[in-house]
């Protein structure tokens, strides 16, 4: 963390969601400080994706309170926002990186247009400048510059994910929610993407909540971890502490079952 703030960027208390008789997540709480990356880890069915979906508003939480410290200093009651306000928040100060990059891209328009869209939505009106910024970002995410006018259909999985990241970060969101950002990619491609993400997070001083089942991803990207199981948080703490010295039996099981090269 590079700034000292008086209050967290994001404060979550008692977050809960049920799907009929099933528990999605129960009584989840954490604070996220500016410049911090929080990893939410667990196996599939642990409720980690539900937590993210409740934060983004993709599903309606049944319980809890989420407070976000906006750029203008206001405290926003995120769960209480109506759809208009929520969409506005997601367009301006937050960003979402989807597990499947196709969910976060327009496959029918060029890479340049994909990166430039959020800029245009916020009022950018100079074609040359928009294109210039798009080129800058393609360079940042290590996509060949002469792909700027290509359709994403022609991109590999890793390139699509990097394009999605560029599209999301181009307007400088303060908080980014990432759902399994390296899911479905080859190991070598993953490594490259993780390196990129780590660099961007540090360089842009991003705050992020990253959901992942992969402890290696968590170790590389997250400052702190929450371990989820059966919808509840069973352990939390600094990443290295949780992974090197797990206290909860489930965490111990999780850590020990990771294959070590």
């Amino acid at each position: 963390m590079s700034r000292v703030e008086e209050r967290p960027l994001l404060g979550v208390r008692g977050l809960g969601k049920r799907y009929g008789a099933q528990t999605g997540c129960l009584d989840v709480g954490f604070d996220l400080w500016p410049g911090e990356v929080l990893g939410v880890v667990g196996e599939s069915g642990s409720g980690k994706t539900t937590v993210l979906n409740c934060l983004s508003g993709r599903v309606a939480a049944d319980a809890g309170r989420v407070e976000y410290a906006a750029r203008d200093g206001r405290i926003v009651d995120v769960l209480g926002l109506d759809e208009s306000a929520r969409r506005r928040l997601l367009r301006s100060e937050w960003g979402i990186v989807h597990q499947n990059p196709r969910d976060g891209l327009r496959m029918g328009v060029t890479a340049g247009a994909n990166v430039g869209e959020r800029l245009m939505a916020l009022g950018a009106r100079h074609y040359g400048q928009i294109r210039g910024l798009a080129l800058d970002w393609l360079a940042q995410v290590e996509i060949d510059l002469d792909r700027i006018d290509d359709l994403p259909e022609t991109f590999s999985g890793g390139m699509l994910q990097r394009l999605q990241i560029a599209r999301t970060l181009v307007t400088g969101p303060r908080l980014v929610l990432m759902d399994e950002p390296t899911g479905g990619l080859d190991v070598s491609v993953q490594a490259r993407l993780l390196d990129l993400l780590r660099g961007l997070v540090a360089e842009l001083d991003l705050s992020a909540v990253i959901v992942t089942h992969d402890l290696a991803v968590a170790r590389l990207l997250a400052h702190r971890l929450i371990v989820m199981r059966g919808g509840e948080a069973v352990e939390s703490g600094l990443t290295d502490q949780v992974l090197d010295d797990p206290q909860h039996p489930y965490t111990q099981l999780l850590v020990s079952s990771v294959l070590h090269p």
Binding site: V109, G112, A113, E117, M120, A121
Partner: peptide
């Protein structure tokens, strides 16, 4: 309602491209 007109400018951008 939300003045989400970015997508129209995307269309113009694509034409120019």
């Amino acid at each position: 309602a939300l003045e989400e007109y970015g997508v129209m400018y995307v269309r113009l951008y694509e034409d120019i491209t």
